[in-house]
Design a protein around this nucleic acid. Sequence first.
DNA 1: GCCTGTTTCAAACGGTTGTTTCAATCAACT
DNA 2: AGTTGATTGAAACAACCGTTTGAAACAGGC
Lengths: 221, 221
Amino acid sequence: MSSGETTKARLLEAAGEEFAAKGYEKASIRKICDRVNANCAAVNYHFGSKEQLYVEAVLEAHRCGTEMLPESAFQEGTPAQQLRRYIHHFLGHVLAISHENTWHQALMLREMIQPTPASEVLVREAIRPRFERLVGILRGVCPEAEPRKLSALAFSVVGQCLHYRVARSISERLVGAELYETLDLDFLTDHITSFCLAALGLAPPLNLAGEAVVNDPVSIR
Amino acid sequence: MSSGETTKARLLEAAGEEFAAKGYEKASIRKICDRVNANCAAVNYHFGSKEQLYVEAVLEAHRCGTEMLPESAFQEGTPAQQLRRYIHHFLGHVLAISHENTWHQALMLREMIQPTPASEVLVREAIRPRFERLVGILRGVCPEAEPRKLSALAFSVVGQCLHYRVARSISERLVGAELYETLDLDFLTDHITSFCLAALGLAPPLNLAGEAVVNDPVSIR
DNA sequence: GCCTGTTTCAAACGGTTGTTTCAATCAACT
DNA sequence: AGTTGATTGAAACAACCGTTTGAAACAGGC
């Protein structure tokens, strides 16, 4: 009709953007259909209900928008290098949402914050594999740590990263927009990596200026 | 009528619980009024609109549910002790939500994650004062740090804490309910405090078991 | 008693929601 | 061409939403 794609595919794309932007409740299937010049009955015809459309959108999101780094990228180098790569990759996804208009990340993180029945699949298919990789890296640093401690360590890493997504608007209001803008991917990767490496004893503690003390910057990058 | 309190007060209380549990959109003023045996027109009579009722509920929340520690508690002791007190106090609020049925914290954190026009007041009156205290503590540790670095450090602290509220249900599904239950206030306070103190050089790095290395445990408590 | 201002109540309003209905359209195959 | 099955379309459905209305109930002052 208005595009080469099928109506079902166009609906799924529009639904993803709408759900990501407004959330499940506030997104209306009429507006979704209007976007792609489809009839509002098309949703129930192709997907059965609004809820199933949402589930399909979440699955599509984590299918398209969350390509994992190859396994090799996490096994090469020192644990410090592995952790830095992980944080950089993860932060990249977290910060990407605000700038680009890819709805995939936004929808996944919305699902994390306010879980729906779709979250079970999301955890199993997308989140747990990544989490296990991080735990694997941390196990390399703390081989004697019990599972509970490893989980807490992993939560400390992802918690610091996700904060810039979860509390973005509040943080921006808190410290001012001009300062918040300078907290870009490179700066935050350096900061969070240094913070975690110092805590884990893989790097010296932060100095009086809060900066990392690195004798050979190349060694951990 | 059904209680000693006025209809307006009962409405505000019920609205807080309902907004905290379901969010602004999904909460309906009819159900709020039914809870306290009030007519649904009472909301518009006493508060003007649903939105103003929500604003009043948010203000009531941060008025009742967020008593700050006295200023002295943050000025006494070493920076390490101050930081530990801050994390313990903050984590206590974060974790309290799930167990007790105080809606105040839940509503405030909901406002943090999905800000509404009420968030400006919330930041000014409740969040910023606490944040400035944390920044003050961190400035004591890193006196030469620029504002940007201090903000990032503060976000690292609160990000680790808030994660256990924001991503609670997902994390619970991720590591299993039985393990997640063991992540209680005492354990997480110890963990996050040790993690941050080690990163800041106020304590030795975590050992191979991910545990804090403390010669004199009393000294940092 | 009467009056006045405040508060409550049932009912209805206009609007939006997700969903269903059923006829119209289209593509493909015999 | 004719038939079949999948898709689209406009309209209506039932339920809920926040809000408004206007009359009733209540209070306290005169």
